[in-house]
């Protein structure tokens, strides 16, 4: 397994470099301009000077290599310096800077991570916790009313877009009932019971909306996987052994059914980091998704490039993790 992992990791290096170049190329080819959103009162000559100050007059390969140097060398060095409190070289390195904010992209990402992990991560966990029991019961009592209702809710959760459910919830719970705030306060610091409750209230709606979506997806996976396994001979064997139905279901069927589900869950983790662009926008949870969309709208190429590349790294990484997990969970799979 270790050899396999190392081999896979080695292979990801050229893959990621290639991906970064493709992203760069695509962003460069896109007819987008960082001065496009400036007020009309700014004359074209000034816009041209702004573009030059951003380095846009350089040829593409120079800009790409510069980004590579900033991202692969300067930023890691900076992180090492910060973590270990040491000084490497003169410490005056060019960092990947956002064009819109003129601040280092990595700092922006670090600032955004908490709310994204809280809201999107929590919704993922909640979604999984809801989905697994629903999937198990739906499969075990296939075509029962529980299964039918579960199927209906999954369909709703899956097909109704979050910008609809989100706005609907805001209208009901913020405008009519006034229970939850419609705007997320990213500056809230949880320090006592009252602020904790405040945090819970402002997280309730976005987490619910996203959890519904996640649960819909995962519960269907869970149900399908359970159904696959329920009809296997080894389940009959387990019953023939005279095991309790609980044991049959939870030890034999559930554990085997979880293998594909766990890998699906692992594969979707990068989405948590990617944030939920729409939901973050609807509830004003200004996390990574909102950062990305603002970057795209404002043609903030270093920001978009860095964010999408980090997502690419996460996706490649979690693909590997999913494969390794599969190998650990399913003794039939051996990579070496």
């Amino acid at each position: 397994m270790l050899n396999y992992t190392i081999r896979r990791l080695m292979f990801t290096v050229p893959v990621l470099l290639f991906i970064s170049f493709i992203i760069f190329l695509l962003l460069d080819l896109a007819p987008n301009d960082p001065t496009g959103n400036l007020p009309m009162t700014i004359p074209p000559e000034v816009r041209q000077q702004i573009r030059e100050s951003l380095g846009l007059d350089q040829p593409i390969w120079v800009r790409y290599l510069l980004w590579c140097k900033q991202f692969f060398i300067n930023e890691p060095l900076n992180i090492i310096e910060q973590w270990f409190g040491i000084q490497i070289g003169d410490g005056d390195r060019l960092r990947v800077r956002s064009w819109a904010t003129r601040s280092p992209v990595v700092d922006l990402i670090v600032e955004r991570l908490p709310q994204t992990l809280w809201v999107v991560g929590m919704s993922y966990v909640v979604g999984i916790l809801i989905a697994i029991p629903i999937g198990v019961v739906s499969a075990y009592r296939q075509y029962s009313w529980f299964d039918q209702i579960g199927t209906f809710i999954s369909m709703v959760g899956f097909s109704v877009p979050t910008f609809f459910t989100g706005v609907l919830m805001i209208v009901i719970f913020s405008v009519w009932l006034g229970w939850f705030p419609s705007i997320y306060d990213t500056t809230l610091v949880v320090e006592d019971w009252a602020s904790f409750m405040q945090q819970v209230r402002q997280m309730a709606m976005p987490v619910f909306v996203l959890a519904l979506f996640n649960a819909a997806q995962i519960s269907r996976f869970m149900r399908a996987s359970m159904l696959d396994n329920l009809n296997q001979d080894y389940v009959r064997t387990a019953r023939a052994k005279g095991l309790k139905e609980r044991t049959v279901l939870l030890v034999h069927v559930l554990r085997n059914s979880l293998i594909p589900v766990v890998t699906v869950i692992a594969l979707n983790v990068p989405q948590v980091f990617g944030g939920a662009i729409i939901t973050e926008q609807v509830f004003k949870v200004n996390g990574l998704g909102q950062l990305l969309i603002i970057g795209i709208q404002g043609a903030d190429i270093p920001l978009v490039q860095t964010l999408t590349f980090i997502f690419a790294v996460l996706i490649v990484l979690f693909n590997l993790i999913a494969d390794i997990l599969y190998g650990i969970l399913d003794p039939r799979i051996r990579y070496d």
Binding site: Q232, D233, Y234, R236, T237, A240, R255, N256, I259, R332
Partner: peptide, 15 residues
């Protein structure tokens, strides 16, 4: 009362 199944692969819990 016990049973021996046709498919020895499928009838044994793989995990």
């Amino acid at each position: 009362m016990q049973m021996v199944f046709q498919d020895p692969q499928a009838s044994l819990n793989p995990r």
